[in-house]
Design a protein around this nucleic acid. Sequence first.
DNA 1: ACTGACTTGGCATGCCTCCC
DNA 2: GGGAGGCATGCCAAGTCAGT
Length: 560
Amino acid sequence: MDTNPLLGTTYKKFPYPSMAEISSLAAQTQFTEEQIKVWFSAQRLKHGVSWTPEEVEEARRKQFNGTVHTVPQTITVIPAHQLSAAANGLQSILQTCQIVGQPGLVFTQVGGNLPVTSPITLTVAGLPSQSQSSSRVSCQPTPTNSEMKRATTVQPPSLSPQNSALSADTFSMRPKKSKEQLAELKASYLKNHFVTDAEIARLMKLTNLTKGEIKKWFSDTRYNQRNSKNSHVIVFHDGGGRSGSCSSTANTTIVIDSSDETPTSPHPPRTPPVKEKETRPKTWNPFPDFTLQKFKEKTPEQLVVLEESFEKSATPSDEELSRLRTETKLTRREIDAWFTERRKMPSVRPSPEQLHILKSAFVRTQWPTPEEYDQLAEESNLPRSYIVSWFGDSRYSWKNGNLKWFFQYQSGNIEGPNSGGGSKLGSGSRKRRGRNRGWGRSRTRKQPRRSTSSSTDVDRSTPSKKFKTGKEILKEYYLKHHFLNEQDLDELVTKTNMSYEQVREWFAEVQRRLDMGLDPFQEPDEEDDEEDEDDGDDTDDSEVWEPSRSVKKSLSVSED
DNA sequence: ACTGACTTGGCATGCCTCCC
DNA sequence: GGGAGGCATGCCAAGTCAGT
């Protein structure tokens, strides 16, 4: 074929032949249209010609003075293996997506990471000649967008934005998308079903639509296309279209005919392939992550109510139980069972306030002195061993550049844990997902009791002093209100210098004691004194908020 | 110190539905 | 049929935790 003068001259004239030209060439030579297409592709590859569809279109427009061909147009994606065979020696790395016809569009992909296994034929049945945008039909794959390798050595005429028939000022702010806007969107959609950021920016300029609107439109169009009567066909009616005709001014029809799984648009890998037309079975699982197995028999609504109640108190009062029974329509036994199970689930994280203390310290120094560790343990009420571990992990994360909060703290751009602005972990503002994912990391070891050690003495030393003050405040509050109002939690935490969990647990303990008919304000450490002497600082209070890991580690590491 | 499993929130996308 | 609202779902990054 290389020696065929007709092919050679045609290629020199324009490297992207139209379908009419290909048909003509096929008629004049002994080669099939497919062979000719492949030959042109190979030539372009050989000569390093790789124009984007827009460039091809623009070049063609200039060269042919805007002539619009009237033949139906087909976009063919030729599988790499077929192409390589036909290209006779060329590497099997070339795929083409070619509009054989007026636009003469071709893309080439180097690397062959588009697993096309059978031809995809896109038939463009005529284009309205007045619409420049709709003539920009292309099949431009942008797998991961930036990876479209271009070995362009021949530059096509540059595109000038003013050529666009549309401009931003064409549009006014209308709730419905204008024809022009839709035309742009459709044109873009035809190029790529998954709009890229660059394309969004372009469309935003052209259409004055927001990013969200554009993305939404693309999403819906993809969905509608799949769910249309014929999932392989998408019909974009254009204003002046004459239906039922194959003429150039009829509506634009793209026929996507591919039997393989390849998405018509090579989207970044994270996007799942476009599924075949299907009705998604309604097998929605409220707990798709399969956590919290024990509680799955409860509906999400029930769980929300229960969780909210548990946050207020781990041991609901009778009054609260009644409320829960009414709200959840669960039996008292069920609710009791839930709370019992829920209480077994350890609280695994330090409070935001405690984290704030640690993070602030970490910014000051990644290697605290023993005295500083002691001080931090005192300030945060966290076990010293936990703090040591936390610093170790944080140093490692920081070293690997994974400590995102570090720079925020370093820059001083922290509003504090209670403000809700600086830390996304602020418990007051922490968002819960709709799905209940729970805390359920399974524990392979039971929480060990602490043995005596020097560091536990440190842990225990001063907090008790603060704690007593805090308890006095809480007692005062309780006598006044008789329950913990969540709205007052922030204030209480601030006043008492206790964590959220500690405050909550204090109220829970009071309630527990009331339920048991005991003095609600008797200091737990008074009765547990002996045990505490032996076991370190793990009072009942601390058990709730202390990260279990710290306990576990603290024992295994045993106070370094 | 390091690794790997896990949790969590944010975001993108798919899907359904209703309204015009 | 197009447009938009809203929920479901999947993916990812960041952070946490258990174990070596």
